[in-house]
Every structure is written in structure tokens, then in C-alpha cells.
């Protein structure tokens, strides 16, 4: 009984405490760079699309709100033909970013994406692709990967030897 009264008193005293609420549209809260907000697709340091259409983000997505189709340019570089995120389903869990092997898909500290019409929340590749590297500068998947693309032949990736001549039988 006494503890109840003490509780009442302590709660009553909160009347004179400072309020913690941030008056949102008037004041902006600080969101860390790793905050999980609007999703973007980044570019590699050479300005090419980082996304290689591996489908891992779509696979990791617990609400299945990512759909894409892989395609290849004439030189064998793979990229998404279309890349769609239905933000009206997205729960901003960040699994897609964690799954991404090329740092292409990233969540940003932007949460202001309210819309009056749900179709406006369906973002296509044009809406997602930014002209920068985002949070992870410097990484280019194609420089590490052993696949030949335009401008990078076999054996020219990091840590690769030149292609072997298989008709040579010298030890």
C-alpha cells in the first residue's frame, strides 16, 4: 500500500521533468548513417551499377517485397533488367543490405517517404539508383570476381594469375 502511494508520488513528480519528445516536423531527430530507412542502389567507384542481379536480397526479404530480373550486357556484365521494391510492404529490416554481396543495396537515414497513394511507394530501378557509392566507398565486385566483363579480361581481377595455356604440357 505504501509503495503504491510512493509510486503515485514519483509519477506525480514527473510533472516537473523535462520532456523528451522531439517535435518532429519542426525539429529533426538525428539519424545515424547506418539508420535503416529508404533503400537505394549504389554505384561502384567507376560509376557502373553495383547490383549484379544475384537475387540474394529478394531471397532474404522476409516480406518478399523485392523483385528483379537479371540480364547481361554484350560483354557479360550482369545487371538487373528491372529492380522493384514495393515500399508499401517493406519493413526496413535491412536483411537485403546484409545479404548483398556487392554493397549495392543500402539503407539510408531517410524516412520521409509518406505517400497518399500506395502505387507511389513502388520504386523502380530509376527511383532507387543513386549516383554514388553510399556507405561503402571503394568496393567494386567486378575487380575481385573471376568473370570476364567489358574492360576486364580473364586473369585481370585482383589476385589472379594470367590465363593458362592449356595446350602446353611443360611441368
Amino acid at each position: 500500500m505504501l509503495s503504491t502511494i510512493r509510486t503515485l508520488w514519483y509519477v506525480f513528480l514527473h510533472m516537473f521533468h523535462k520532456r523528451v519528445t522531439i517535435q518532429y516536423p519542426d525539429e529533426k531527430a538525428y539519424l545515424a548513417p547506418r539508420y535503416r530507412g529508404r533503400i537505394i542502389l549504389s554505384r561502384d567507384p567507376d560509376g557502373g551499377e553495383r547490383c549484379v542481379a544475384c537475387h540474394l536480397c529478394a531471397e532474404a526479404c522476409p516480406v518478399d517485397c523485392i523483385a528483379l530480373q537479371a540480364t547481361e550486357d554484350e560483354n557479360g556484365r550482369r545487371y538487373p533488367e528491372f529492380f522493384r521494391i514495393n515500399f508499401s510492404r517493406c519493413i526496413f529490416c535491412g536483411f537485403c543490405e546484409e545479404a548483398c554481396p556487392t554493397y549495392a543495396i543500402q539503407l539510408t537515414p531517410d524516412t520521409e517517404m509518406g505517400e497518399y497513394k500506395r502505387p507511389n511507394l513502388v520504386y523502380e530501378k530509376d527511383d532507387l539508383l543513386i549516383n554514388g557509392e553510399g556507405k561503402y566507398p571503394g568496393y567494386n565486385f567486378w575487380r575481385v570476381s573471376g568473370v570476364k566483363i567489358g574492360g576486364k579480361d580473364k586473369g585481370e581481377a585482383e589476385n589472379e594469375g594470367p590465363p593458362v595455356d592449356v595446350h602446353r604440357l611443360l611441368p
Binding site: H55, A58, E59, I66, A67, N86, R118, V122
Partner: peptide, 15 residues
């Protein structure tokens, strides 16, 4: 069971 894109593959037509 790991089929992906269920809520997005047709979102360009209708959400």
C-alpha cells in the same frame, strides 16, 4: 518455400 518477390513482382501493375 523460399520463393521471393511475392509482394513485388506485380506491384508495377497493382499494389
Amino acid at each position: 518455400h523460399r520463393y521471393s518477390g511475392r509482394t513485388s513482382m506485380l506491384a508495377n501493375i497493382s499494389v
